[in-house]
Amino acid sequence: MSDTKKFLYVNRKAPYGTIYALESLEVVLIGAAFEQDVALAFLDDGVFQLTKGQDTAGIGVKNFSPTFRALGDYDVNKLYVERESLEERGLTEDDLQEIMYEDEDDDWAEKPSIRIVSRAEMAEIMAEQDVILSF
C-alpha cells in the first residue's frame, strides 16, 4: 500500500455559530504539509461556509472565509459542494465566493477549486476515501 491516503474533510455546519468550521480549516491547513490526497466536502449547512460577502466586524469574530481562497497555495484544490444542499437553502453557485488554484500540470492555468456535485456523486466521493474527518 502506498503512503498516500485519500482524506476527505466533511463540512456540514455553518460558520460562526459554532467553531467547527474554523477548526476544520485549521486541520486542512496543517494536514496539507503531509502530502496526502486531500478533498473537502461541503453539504447540508456546510455550504454556508463558502458564501461571499461575509463580514464579521459586528460580531467581533475573525472572518476566516478568505482563507478558503488560499487553499490552492497549499495544493488543496478539490472543494466538492453539493448541489441539492445549495438548492434546499435557496443558494446557487453564484452565491459562493470564487476559489481558484493554479494547475501545475497544465502550465499553471487558473482553474476553479469548487466543483458542484450531485448528492449521488457526493456519496460516491465519500465511498472512495480512506479517512473521513467530520466537522
Binding site: V27, G31, F34, Q36, L133, S134
Partner: peptide
C-alpha cells in the same frame, strides 16, 4: 501537541472513528 498528530494517526491506523 499539534494537529499533525491527527493527520499522522489517520495515515498510520487502519480505521479512524470520531466521537463528537
Amino acid at each position: 501537541s499539534g494537529l499533525g498528530q491527527l493527520i499522522e494517526m489517520g495515515i498510520q491506523t487502519d480505521r479512524l472513528v470520531m466521537f463528537g
